[in-house]
Design a protein around this nucleic acid. Structure first.
Lengths: 285, 285
DNA sequence: GTTCCGCATGAATCGATAG
DNA sequence: ACTATCGATTCATGCGGAA
């Protein structure tokens, strides 16, 4: 099957109207933060951030499939020595629109921006808010499993008698375990805390997040030939990764230069994939 | 100077009224989360959590010094497949009371609760909300800096295998610093992400958080002879640590048994300190 | 004294079943 | 329909006893 990439140049609020209802499997985006990136997006004042975003999230709710997921990467800025409240107000308002606030992942930025202030430390994390239309949605948990801790090697080497049967907690927490079930495992499910470095090899554009971030969510919430949308494409990390992972992708950005560059990059990936495919077919014959 | 420990048995909302205005340097507490700890605290329904907490935070605002800090450890539970919103609603309401929401630290729980669900992963983090009365407050950042020498010798050695295998850039080191940024310096400032394991070994009581957690905030926001308050004392981790660090401490709890136990433990620390002092004096002579 | 190793424990959440 | 209870699921840690 053919993988497609669609790029729209213009205002997200308007361009989203061109997309069909229930047509997207995963939305993952990092919108311009309040008063950040003024030079490219004009900057939205913290007080007006919620009203600016709500018409967009309304469209996103429309285009997302019932089984789909919306991942919103955002962090409130400091204003007058305080954390702004527009992010938490946004959560409350989006729920009124019909979104379910399913989960909040933490992106721990391992090499966060250096600096020193008299009354705060470096900010080393951002929110990854997960919203859904339904309690049931597609989630492919096995795709993102991680190696089990080293403790397993020693712990599972010699099993005691209690390990071989279900051992219920003595304190009535309702928690029990059967260690012998773990013998064949070498992987564990991850948690809702993601440890990723920020990419500092930015090519003079505002790089929102490292490739591993959209990659992880695309693996977790989509399968091949599904459709991924980023309404604030920027340098196009999400689209480029989606493309490479054989997902259809849709990007919107108000900056023409970004649109051109991402078009070029995704085409390059498509060419590469074609070539690889051709090589495989040649090898097969 | 003499260090004092005051323990009140009863309802926080009432007992707090006994404390003087502007008399506390640091409040650090972990109130019962909504619908948790039903057996000891009765459980507060998520819908009523905010109205339950506001009279208490009003008293806390009164007793805190203008230069003081309030650290609130809390996490919303899942209800009907969604994250409850009472925590973020609480932030908005506390601001209306006059609190400044200065910062949000993340406590990354390295050994979080196990389990598997079709639509979510294990929850590995909790909020540590920082509130203040003024933009200017006491903060002793140097106290929580970690000497690189010590870091290399102790923390590096203690890195768990999990951290190494999952993550070759040393996530679990101290409080989220990146060694490569600080190689040339003697000490590193931490970030707002704290990596700590919960203490869950059998001490036949429910320990809210590991000792390192209050210890870190007490070092950061107080100096010797300052006063630390925990209005939901529980097993008394905060008070015991404060006591040991030569801070005055005030604790409140509705469970008589906790009050008795903490009284005993803090007295033991006082005796130990006296004895140590006596030994030093003897050695000096 | 170290190091090794066994083991109970934990602010959980979902789905099914029962009242 | 709506709420309460119960069983099933699952990691990583620090303690303490043993080597």
């Amino acid at each position: 099957m053919e993988i497609t990439t669609q790029i729209f140049h213009g205002d997200s609020k308007e361009k989203l109207k061109l997309l069909a209802d229930n047509s997207v499997d995963l939305i993952i985006t990092s919108p311009p933060y309040a008063d950040q990136r003024k030079n490219t997006y004009g900057g939205i004042h913290p007080d007006r951030y919620v009203e600016w975003f709500l018409p967009i999230s309304e469209q996103l709710l429309r285009v997302l499939k019932p089984s789909g997921t919306f991942i919103l990467n955002i962090k409130e800025k400091v204003l007058g020595g305080e954390r702004s409240t527009y992010v938490i107000e946004l959560i409350l308002e989006m729920r009124k629109q019909g979104w379910l606030w399913t989960e909040e992942f933490i992106w721990h930025k391992k090499n966060c921006y250096p600096g020193k202030w008299p009354n705060r430390f470096r900010d080393a994390w951002e929110r990854l808010l997960q919203f859904n239309k339904n309690r049931k949605f597609n989630m492919y948990q096995e795709e993102v499993m991680v190696p089990m801790g080293e403790w397993a090697n020693t712990r599972l080497k010699n099993l005691s008698e209690t390990d071989k049967t279900r051992d219920n907690s003595k304190v009535g927490s309702g928690f029990g375990k059967n260690i012998s079930n773990w013998l064949t495992r070498d992987k564990a499910y991850p948690t809702n805390v993601l440890h990723l470095a920020t990419e500092c090899n930015n090519k003079n554009h505002s790089a929102a997040f490292p490739e591993d971030l959209p990659k992880w969510f695309i693996k977790l919430f989509t399968k091949e030939n599904d459709t991924v949308l980023d309404p604030f494409m920027g340098s196009g990390t999400t689209l480029i990764v989606a493309n490479r992972m054989l997902r259809n992708s849709i990007g919107i950005d108000i900056v023409a230069d970004y649109c051109d560059r991402v078009k070029k990059e995704t085409r390059a990936v498509e060419l590469y994939l074609c070539e690889t495919k051709a090589r495989y077919e040649k090898a097969d014959s």
